[in-house]
Design a protein around this nucleic acid. Structure first.
Lengths: 134, 134
DNA sequence: TTTTACAGTATCCTTTTAGGTACTACGTAC
DNA sequence: GTACGTAGTACCTAAAAGGATACTGTAAAA
């Protein structure tokens, strides 16, 4: 059994956690949904919000989210082209999930140029700010 | 830039959603955490709860979760070996997130032997139960 | 007249993830 | 004396994800 997570879900139908994760899987889906929570965005607007994504990857992730029914793609037949991405009503239902993910990330994940680290808020909440480089 | 999601987080430090997802990434982490939410489990107990995982994969996912500090591994020097996995206090903080993921999966993801599908609860909530095979 | 913006495709290549199988050690049960 | 359960490790291969680069077409701006 050598299947990608999305196709494997049927093999653990008892786990709604994995079922949900399978839709958020893909490197940029989280950020994309995060940004679209605040409203419609055009392709290049999204691109500018994601520092390092390539066109290919952004297109791919957007298509997958669209295919799942989580967001809509509206093409305006003008030139230069105008394509708008927005959350569908189904996508909106993900907002509490995204917010839970964001809240936890804000509280416990600490990113630095060297990588990321997990820490309880109590592990020295008072000091570390002073140790940041100016 | 060709890095796994976990190592790439430093490139979008502004996105706590991806930061969190990077810790849940890996095909079995979601299920593992889901089961450990209810209490300590031994290696083979976990294995029996996951229908298709191989020893190699389970070990790998557990090690990654342990390294992140989300769960603990207690080895009892007896024979046959006894190793217990449990959530750490830090891991416990993930419970609301796991619950949000599980709730959304329960409400919107529908799994069948053919795959999985996303649907709003309103899309015919009354009928489909009758269409299930007995 | 060349450049820019837009929203992508197409092609190729590398990295990462996941799975398969076999093997370990020890003690107990059959 | 053979098999079983425990908790793994080692080695190899397949598949999927991700990335680099180049290319498309039109209209307006420089």
């Amino acid at each position: 059994m050598s299947l990608p997570r999305a196709k494997l879900v049927k093999n653990f139908p008892g786990c709604p956690v994995e079922a949900t994760l399978s839709y958020l899987d893909g490197k940029w889906k989280g950020v994309i949904l995060f940004h679209l929570m605040e409203g419609t965005l055009r392709f290049n607007e999204l691109r500018r919000k994601l520092p390092a994504v390539t066109q290919r990857m952004l297109t791919k992730q957007l298509r997958e989210l669209e295919e799942a029914g989580l967001l809509s793609r509206a093409v305006f037949p003008v030139v230069p082209p105008r394509v708008e991405y927005a959350m569908t009503p189904l996508g909106m239902t993900l907002k509490p999930v995204i917010r839970a993910l964001a809240a936890w990330g804000d509280d416990y994940v600490f990113c630095s140029p060297e990588g990321r680290e997990l820490r309880m808020a109590s592990d020295g909440l008072c000091a570390p700010v002073a140790t940041l480089q100016t």
